[in-house]
Design a protein around this nucleic acid. Structure first.
Lengths: 205, 205
DNA sequence: AGAGTGGTAGACAGATCTGTCTACTCTAAC
DNA sequence: GTTAGAGTAGACAGATCTGTCTACCACTCT
């Protein structure tokens, strides 16, 4: 019965370190800073200290590595954003925390835009799979925003408002990337968001 | 006096066709559709029907060609946007024309995002010259928006509002690119713009 | 007619990129 | 101890990319 996959060692000794996760983590940082075309496989391998064959035993192609990087980025993004909101009680403050989270992100020294907008910019034709991951990510953010908006606008209006706030955040990302003034972009977006909510009774004060 | 540059033939026979402009035009269309890294020099040359030596006699490098493409795109963008606004009289309608112009742009079959946001996404590290061109373009758009806003908000508030509208347009570009719903993105951005202006007396009705 | 200018066609160099493959090593399980 | 799986190191193939260079051509001005 040589078909037994041998699989993970149940003695809970990770093969030494999880090379696949380490590769994805390294690629994530390099792609974020240098772009998808700008960073080659060899750079990732040298930085991660991993052999080329190992990479291609885990991923069939660079495109699939990029796809996994985007899925990992999506997971981290959601977890971090949820953590940023977690401490706040008041609905308006929870919403504000999303914009403050973006302000902190823009202020990171190696901020180079949104990996999902960037992948759409670099691969707009072809690579439909990557485009779909970007679409899903933005849709998930919109759903998250809608959840925060329900206490402020009611369930019916929350979806429409969430699309607007999503647009504000994308706008802030673009302005932060091109102008370099991330703090101003985030503050302006939040100011606009508040004024767009102002006609609602729940958002007063 | 061999220093005389011989220059353009005064008999007004353009060397046959202006190869430099033709190259820039071809490169503009290809870069817009395929990205800057995604489109190689050879593709541009084959499409334009121009020899490689001709390209390198006009531009010292691909980067400089990209820079000239961006400057040309900026010129066309401004001319087209000004033409789109020219027919309108009422200040609010002139502003609306900007958002309608963007809606038409997003609806073009080969729309693939803003070339300036995209160049910032592809070359974020290094290539400071290209980043500066993108920054200048967005700044010029903001100034143009401020001019349209002066009749609506007064001169003092116009600059701040222009930055907000610039952010709205960048957001619409990002949403249109990733979601594919350009019409919805442009309509949403204009709706937000109107509501942000609504508290102003001049914008009523 | 001759010279100069600007173009074409395309070979070529040198780098770089993705992806494959061989040979060797380490470790864990039997 | 033996065997199998997973990893390392890196050569290699094949494509592609930027940029240079040679050889030739067409046209215009003197």
């Amino acid at each position: 019965m040589p078909r037994r996959p041998a699989a993970r060692p149940l003695s809970e000794t990770p093969v030494r370190v999880d090379r696949r996760a380490h590769l994805v983590d390294t690629a994530l940082r390099l792609f974020a800073a240098g772009g998808y075309h700008g960073v080659g496989i060899d750079t990732i391998l040298a930085t991660a200290g991993v052999a080329k064959k190992t990479l291609y035993s885990h991923f069939p192609s660079k495109t699939e590595l990029i796809a996994e990087v985007l899925r990992e980025r999506d997971r981290r993004f959601r977890a971090s954003l949820e953590a940023g909101v977690a401490g706040r009680e008041a609905p308006l403050e929870r919403l504000q925390a999303v914009f403050e989270w973006h302000a902190r992100w823009f202020a990171e020294p190696d901020f180079a835009g949104c990996m999902f907008l960037n992948v759409a910019a670099e691969f707009h034709a072809g690579e439909a799979g990557l485009a779909q991951i970007a679409r899903d990510h933005k849709q998930a953010l919109e759903t998250f925003l809608a959840g925060l908006l329900v206490p402020l606008t009611g369930a019916e209006a929350a979806l429409a408002r969430a699309a607007e706030f999503n647009l504000l955040l994308d706008g802030a990302i673009g302005v932060a990337l091109v102008s370099g003034d991330g703090a101003g972009a985030a503050a302006r977006a939040w100011d606009m968001a508040r004024r767009l909510l102002a006609p609602l009774p729940a958002a007063q004060g």
